[in-house]
């Protein structure tokens, strides 16, 4: 590239780079290249969009018989999926997930509760740890310390979930049962903590990046009026970075709900309705993973599993949407509309 005369440069404006600034002349012939480049990038963006739409369409298509096919509805209509059913005459109505049965039972409630329980425990475990570590690393840690903490936590994100699940199944479960004296070895708490370990690096990375990118001027201003470093962190940096931290938590929650291998291995997979955190539980994702391989193609069980897939898709979509809304509101509040 060589230096050329700059067309359209307004010499009346002061230049912050001084007089010897380099300008590149964009000749008309490069317009085509520019055009193609732009379209190519647009195509990559659309590929992701189309893929998402196609995935949703195909998953939903397999779930449609629940709404249209009378035969499927008799076994697994929306009502049967949601409300409790009487399966034996004279016995109280129950929510049950027993797809391989003489009378298949497809209540989604036990699975829904399991999914929520796992995600809740994971978040309770991961948010304080992830955000706390991020605050320490970005605000208080020495540069050297920070150079150790950041890569190590990010390494945690690289652990395959099956390995984490294996760890929870063999080591964590035994440890928890011994220390807390639990009845069930594999339970919601065990799975939730293992899930939390998978979520920590997501929250940490996002929160840490956001906090370090809070403008220097904000800190300087606070320090100039006599705030100590603690006050700077908690009254200036943290509120300014809150939208980013929330975004990290939302990403983490999405992962906690969709994660499969860890819950499949560590939760015990018993589809029961229980609010106890030390009971066994079964999640949506683990149910799909465990049962889809076996299911008879085109049966109502098959349709229900795809319906669960659709639900998971919708949940994560809603969570991300809610996250975006919160993010937008918080940004408005803390950074002004232009921020």
């Amino acid at each position: 590239m060589h230096l050329l005369h700059c067309e359209g440069r307004d010499d009346s404006l002061p230049s912050c780079f001084g007089e010897d600034v380099e300008c590149y002349n964009f000749k008309p012939k490069s317009r085509l290249r520019e055009f193609l480049g732009e379209k190519l990038i647009a195509v990559t963006a659309f590929t992701a969009l189309v893929a998402t739409l196609l995935i949703f369409t195909f998953i939903f298509k397999e779930a449609v018989p629940i709404f249209t096919d009378r035969e499927v509805q008799e076994e697994a209509g929306l009502g049967k999926l949601t409300f409790k059913q009487v399966y034996h005459e004279g016995r109280p109505a129950k929510w049950k997930w027993q797809p391989e049965s003489e009378v298949p039972k497809f209540s989604l409630l036990p699975l829904f509760i399991g999914t929520l329980k796992a995600a809740l425990i994971a978040m309770l475990f991961a948010v304080p740890l992830g955000v706390g570590a991020a605050i320490y690393s970005s605000e208080f840690a020495s540069k050297r310390m920070r150079e150790v903490i950041k890569p190590v936590v990010e390494l945690l994100a690289g652990i395959p979930s099956v390995v984490l699940g294996f760890f929870a199944l063999l080591v964590l479960a035994t440890g928890l049962q011994k220390t807390l004296g639990l009845t069930f070895r594999l339970n919601a708490l065990n799975a939730g903590i293992a899930l939390g370990i998978a979520v920590i690096p997501i929250i940490f990375t996002v929160a840490e990046d956001v906090m370090t990118s809070v403008p220097r001027s904000l800190r300087d201003a606070a320090l100039a009026v006599g705030a100590n470093s603690w006050q700077v962190s908690f009254t200036m940096v943290l509120p300014a970075a809150l939208p980013g931290i929330v975004a990290g938590m939302v990403l983490g929650l999405g992962r906690a709900i969709g994660e499969t291998m860890i819950v499949l291995m560590a939760s015990g997979n018993a589809a029961i309705i229980s609010t106890s955190l030390t009971d066994s539980m079964r999640t949506f994702s683990a149910t799909i993973a465990a049962e889809l391989a076996e299911v008879v193609f085109g049966s109502s069980h098959y349709n229900v599993l795809f319906f669960i897939g659709t639900l998971l898709f919708v949940f994560t979509f809603l969570i991300n949407l809610a996250g975006d809304v919160v993010l937008f509101k918080l940004k408005e509040r803390f950074q002004g509309k232009t921020g």
């Binding site: 049950k96 027993q98 594999l186 291995m265 015990g268 997979n269 066994s280 465990a290």
Partner: peptide
């Protein structure tokens, strides 16, 4: 042919059952 109890835990593989 009756159903398993709801509290029965389902593990992936016999090895996992033996270990548990």
């Amino acid at each position: 042919k009756e159903d398993y109890a709801d509290a029965a835990q389902a593990l992936p593989g016999t090895a996992a059952v033996v270990h548990a």
